[in-house]
Structures are given as structure tokens and as C-alpha cells.
């Protein structure tokens, strides 16, 4: 079983309905996403999922100096930011992509699928 991050991106400056054009559409998307999450859980694929507050609420921290530096706002200056994500388990990329397609439909956003490192791939990195 492999682990994948499914990320959803949304506008940097959301409207009062998040990234949705109207309240109805927002509620529909929430309902569909909830149903999708329930299914993931039933099928034993869900590790974790949640939505994020807008990127304007982010604080960027650099702790490498003597004293940590705090900056208001997200790390990357882009038009779209991470708005929410799932961590799922799937046997292979085909299954992960099929789930991502459903996730995208449910939440009305584009989804990026990325594999997590595995103990073996980290081990391989560390070897000379």
C-alpha cells in the first residue's frame, strides 16, 4: 500500500463563499466532499483530510537564524494556494488517480496527486 497526498488549490483571496461562486454551490461541494470522505473511510483508504483557512491567515517562519523570523502571509506568492488536502492509501497510482478524479469532482477543484516517500526510498537516499 502506498500513501499519496491529494492537494486542492484555491484562490489567494477567497470570496465570502470560499472559492465557490455562491452559497448553494459551496454547500453542495461540502456535502459531496463529505460523502466522498465517508466512502474513503469505509474503504479503509483515508489517512487524514481537512480544509485550510485562506492563505492570508498563514505565517511564514524561518528558524534557521539565531532568532526565528516571522513573516505575515504564505511562503509562495502565487494566485492560487493550497486550500485543503487528503492523505490516502492506495495500492498504486491508477487507484490514486481514480480517487483524485472523484475528489476533484466532489470539491470542485483541481487536485494534485503526489506520492509520499517510503521507508525504502528514504533508505536509498541516505545510502552513499
Amino acid at each position: 500500500m502506498a500513501r499519496y497526498l491529494l492537494s486542492v488549490f484555491g484562490p489567494a483571496e477567497p470570496t465570502e463563499f470560499g472559492s465557490y461562486p455562491s452559497r448553494e454551490e459551496m454547500l453542495e461541494a461540502f456535502a459531496d466532499t463529505g460523502a466522498f470522505n465517508d466512502r474513503l473511510e469505509r474503504e479503509g483508504r483515508l489517512v487524514f483530510a481537512d480544509g485550510l483557512e485562506p492563505a492570508t491567515t498563514a505565517t511564514t517562519v524561518d528558524g534557521r537564524g539565531e532568532r526565528p523570523a516571522f513573516t505575515d502571509g504564505p511562503y509562495l506568492e502565487t494566485k492560487e494556494h493550497l486550500g485543503g488536502f487528503w492523505v490516502i492509501e492506495a495500492p498504486d497510482l491508477d487507484v490514486a488517480l481514480a480517487l483524485a478524479a472523484e475528489a476533484s469532482k466532489a470539491c470542485r477543484g483541481t487536485v494534485e496527486v503526489r506520492p509520499f516517500q517510503t521507508p525504502a526510498s528514504v533508505q536509498a537516499l541516505m545510502e552513499p
Binding site: 502506498a2 495500492p91 498504486d92 517510503t118 525504502a120 526510498s121 533508505q123 536509498a124 545510502e127 552513499p128
Partner: peptide, 13 residues
Amino acid sequence: SLRDAKYQAALMV
């Protein structure tokens, strides 16, 4: 000599 980790990491499904 490193084959175990590299090999496991590269195994296809």
C-alpha cells in the same frame, strides 16, 4: 551492496 534499499524502493507494483 546497497541493493536492498535501492531495489525495494524501485520495485514496481
